[in-house]
Design a protein around this nucleic acid. Structure first.
Lengths: 139, 139
DNA sequence: TTGACAATTAGGACTAAATCCTATTTAATC
DNA sequence: GATTAAATAGGATTTAGTCCTAATTGTCAA
């Protein structure tokens, strides 16, 4: 928790009871919850915390690099006609997806145990960050 | 296009003008469009094609393995407190995300050109398919 | 400790994605 | 060409996410 306070200070984020609660709730979660799921949990302790605050707080933490946004960025569902092996770079600013073709990335060593545990239909390396345009725009 | 017809037959999907149009539109798209974007394009040719049909058709194609759903599965945004290197398996049936810790997967060889082209803040291997529960349930 | 200010929050309104429902239409099969 | 199950249009509904405004609160400096 001490690290949380330090990270807040480093990012000029005020330490509010809501932020502390959101961080604790996410940290103690075993799954990969949505804002709504965390909101439901926090309602018990803070009956009038708003969903907007929970969501905004989580996005703020993610932007500060304190937590991650994972599969499902909150964008609409998107499709790819290319079923050949290739990879993606996702720009977290403009939300564009860029194809990456690099044979060095194609060999993903999935262990036999993993293949046994799951029926794997998709394997892809997902890179994320800022594309060239957004990088220069934000400076 | 001939392959499209064959895939439809193999999956018992009726070949309708709408499905042909959706497939053509996606195939000729350079980006990774959403259902809404494809719907807007098709409106010009089929003024009264519905968004539901476009979306349903795309999901149907994806389930048949004819196209892919990429970053953003249409799920709500989800968060991960664990910023250490790890990977994810996403179940396309129950939508649960499972953590995968496997050091063999950690070495993702991102080329210097790629690092130059983008500011990469996240690297992760995204596996998808069916988890154990859903695999057995669907049989 | 207090006061001032900028940041943050609650709550409701709003927008947009996705799904559901039902009547109608249509592709496939014989 | 007739039959039937599948697919579609269109509108309604649900839900995620964002926006807006007034009220509140954390921080910093005096």
């Amino acid at each position: 928790m001490e690290e949380f306070y330090a990270q807040c200070r480093a990012n000029n984020l005020k330490i509010t009871p809501q932020r502390v609660a959101v961080y604790k709730a996410l940290s103690s979660s075993l799954s990969h919850p949505s804002a709504d799921q965390i909101h439901k949990v926090l309602k018990k302790e803070f009956p009038n915390i708003s969903l907007d605050t929970v969501n905004r707080t989580l996005v703020t933490f993610a932007k500060a690099g304190m937590i991650d946004v994972v599969e499902g960025h909150g964008d609409p569902r998107r499709f790819d006609p290319n079923r050949g092996t290739h990879h993606h770079f996702y720009c977290i600013s403009c939300r564009e997806i860029f194809d990456i073709h690099d044979s060095a990335l194609d060999r993903i060593p999935v262990s036999p145990e993993l293949e046994k545990k799951f029926t794997i239909t998709g394997k892809r390396i997902c890179l994320s960050g800022y594309c060239d345009k957004c990088r220069s725009r934000n400076q």
